[in-house]
Design a protein around this nucleic acid. Structure first.
Lengths: 195, 195
DNA sequence: TGACGAGTTGACCGAACGGTCTACAACCGA
DNA sequence: TCGGTTGTAGACCGTTCGGTCAACTCGTCA
């Protein structure tokens, strides 16, 4: 599964064969099919296990950190990851789940469903952060945390896709203000150090 | 090229073979390779020709229409397309360029470059609309049309991806407020009929 | 000791992959 | 009527695809 996650992330689902995954994992095809019903089942398992999503930056939000700072840290962490990928591999691979979903959401229900689950999880995590930020007075107005989180997920996915397509980490970095705008935390200079 | 555009859009790049494209076009492989150097060249040509992007909603903005209305109409048109796809085919296919880019941006420079060109075009088109809206006083503040347009492109790409992954047209529709927020035209009730 | 289940191995399946090649048909201006 | 170009037709290349299978190894437990 580790080998599969890496390969699928790097090259996409259809561009990687079972053979290749097995070779990378030093296993044999027969063994593979002893544990998995199909290549599709492998991909599904990878996504569900969350291994396919090294991009999920927020595990569980640590307590004692202001919500708005968590949101900013999450974006910065993603930006750092994008940057590192570009420096080390020369390519930006985007979101592991998003990329796979874009490729085969219309072709495989199980994989689409699994990807859905990850997106739900991301949205829920962000919603939690937004709720915290609202309680802390950092987000004003009649904000619906769920809707805001969904927008943030969409925006980040799009930002990653743009950065991947242009193959330029600066694209993702430069899209940060839009993210803050969507969350409604743009201008606050409240904590002394964050941005 | 038409057949290829349709098939690649529906199934993705790697899931479609040259044979299949030829069959759909009632041509023979030999003929295909007389016109194209490779499958990659076909995909590149499709994207560059713009045929791969039925999703480019704004051709050239018609004059006499308020900028902010153009922006809203563009989103609504995309939403209608998403809706129609779901009704007719049971799937939401997202953006033809975005989906392909997500699949193979890291694998093929020519295709990535072509996709880039389309994104640039979209961003420039939106930037033009934003500039018009600013001139008309519908967008306030120290807005940079280029940056705003780039954010809008990212957001719409993400919204399409989310809608595709969840396979639910309502997702795209419900993300509209975020789009308006990014463009800075959310609350204006200026023209009597638009939304 | 011996039977058994878990897991490995590597050959094998038919089909499809991207791409090449040669022979041929149709039309062209000269 | 000819030679050349433009394009078609379809067999063919080696490789890989996802997936299967029977034979085998090995640790466990009785």
């Amino acid at each position: 599964m580790e080998a599969g996650a890496e390969l699928f992330y790097a090259k996409g689902y259809n561009a990687v064969g079972v053979q290749e995954v097995c070779r990378a994992a030093s296993a044999h095809k027969g063994s593979f099919y002893y544990f998995f019903d199909s290549k599709e089942a492998l991909m599904t398992a990878i996504i569900e296990e969350g291994r396919g999503a090294p991009g999920i930056v927020l595990g569980s939000p640590p307590p004692g950190v202001r919500g708005r700072d968590l949101a900013i840290m999450a974006y910065d962490a993603a930006a750092a990851e994008v940057d590192a990928q570009y420096r080390l591999e020369g390519h930006i691979k985007g979101c592991p789940v998003g990329s796979v979903a874009a490729e085969i959401a219309t072709q495989s229900e199980p994989i689409r469903g699994a990807a859905c689950g990850v997106l739900d999880f991301m949205a829920e995590t962000i919603a939690e952060v937004v709720r915290r930020a609202i309680a802390e007075g950092d987000v004003t107005g009649d904000a619906d945390p769920g809707a805001i989180a969904e927008r943030a997920v969409a925006y980040v996915q799009g930002a990653l896709l743009l950065s991947k397509t242009r193959n330029d980490p600066k694209v993702f970095a430069s899209l940060k203000p839009g993210y803050l705008l969507l969350l409604g935390i743009e201008g606050h200079p409240k904590p002394p150090r964050s941005q």
